[in-house]
């Protein structure tokens, strides 16, 4: 059993982000009795209380604002310090731009292995086992670790947080301030879609290469609007983004965003495993595709076979009429 877990947390605008709470939940389900959360950046010590409420037993922080702009070499040094303090059997990170870079670097320095982008992590008679999607989602693979600690990055929303325990507290400790970095960040540009964010939407309508032209996204956007601007957002397949038809920030898939809405409507998307890795967690998938053999129908609960140019405007009208 993993008795000591280290969670590398992340802050958004100085607040603990949702994924960190999911990682604490995963650590708890592994049976860890000590769950240490490392937090770096402005607001870190202030965010400790939320980590305790989420199930952390100890929180290590550095409020050094140099950590706000993630640089792998600075962060890995701080997390190595947290490893010395927490002596973890398992280290959990998010599959984010932080975890993607930190997990392999940490694995090298601790001479152990890292399993990336895992959907599940479990305790199997004292051994950590991590399950992840491989071959673009065509197969799943379960790994065990030959060496300790086990390093696991977890896909967002794949794990549930614990019920918050209001007023919970625990031990706190310090992490060192940022060391010098060999990397300079010359500029950073945040590209946020206007309105509702993809990951927050309860309905996602996505378009793919089958739209045939960037103009195809207009009918997709109209459908999303009819479903409600407060709950529906527009996504796109990697093929559509690579063709320049829609902003890469809206890409749903293995190398884009992972969404878990109540309803996912895939318009003119073939259903390549690469794409399904980003949306298969949706509660209900609807496919609109002119090819009845399209792979997407393997995943969909409901389907319409037909040309999106006719079907999507008809659906938009039907939804407006049903309101």
């Amino acid at each position: 059993m993993a008795s000591n877990a280290l969670v590398v947390g992340e802050l958004a605008e100085g607040e603990l982000n949702a994924t960190t709470l999911e990682l604490i939940g995963a650590a708890s389900r592994l049976g860890a009795s000590n769950i240490t959360v490392a937090l770096l950046g402005g607001g870190a010590s202030g965010a400790a209380s939320k980590a305790f409420e989420g199930g952390a037993t100890k929180v290590l922080t550095s409020d050094d604002a140099s950590y706000d702009e993630f640089r792998g070499d600075q962060w890995v040094a701080a997390v190595q310090n947290a490893v010395e303090q927490a002596s973890p059997d398992v280290i959990l990170l998010a599959q984010s731009h932080v975890g993607r870079e930190l997990a392999p670097r940490l694995a090298f320095r601790l001479d152990t292995g890292a399993a990336m982008d895992c959907l599940n992590v479990e305790d199997d008679g004292g051994a950590v086992k991590a399950t992840r999607s491989v071959y673009g989602g065509n197969a799943m693979a379960t790994y065990s670790f030959v060496t300790s600690p086990a390093i696991v990055t977890v896909r967002a929303k794949a794990q549930d947080p614990l019920e918050p325990n209001a007023g919970a507290s625990g031990e706190t400790g310090e992490l060192p301030g940022a060391s010098d970095s060999r990397t300079t960040i010359a500029g950073r540009e945040i590209v946020e879609a206007a309105g509702l964010q993809l990951q927050d939407a309860s309905i996602v309508v996505s378009g793919g290469r089958g739209l045939g032209a960037p103009e195809g996204f207009q009918v997709v956007e109209e459908l999303a609007k009819a479903l409600g601007a407060d709950r529906a957002a527009v996504g796109a397949s990697r093929a559509a983004c690579d063709l320049g038809w829609y902003p890469p920030s809206q890409q749903v898939g293995l190398t884009g965003k992972v969404v878990t809405p109540d309803l996912y409507i895939a318009v003119a998307i073939s259903g390549a495993s690469q794409h399904m890795a980003g949306c298969s967690g949706a509660k209900t998938i609807v496919a609109i595709n002119k090819d009845p053999e399209a792979n997407i129908f393997q995943f969909a609960r409901y389907g319409i076979v037909g040309d999106y140019k006719e079907m999507v405007p008809a659906l938009t009208e039907a939804i407006k009429a049903a309101k």
């Binding site: 197969a139 799943m140 790994y143 065990s144 030959v146 060496t147 009845p292 129908f297 995943f299």
Partner: peptide
């Protein structure tokens, strides 16, 4: 450092209602 314990193809629902 990692051992592949199990490789499997996930089951799909495959019962689309057209």
């Amino acid at each position: 450092r990692l051992r592949l314990e199990k490789l499997f193809i996930p089951e799909k629902e495959g019962k689309v209602e057209l």
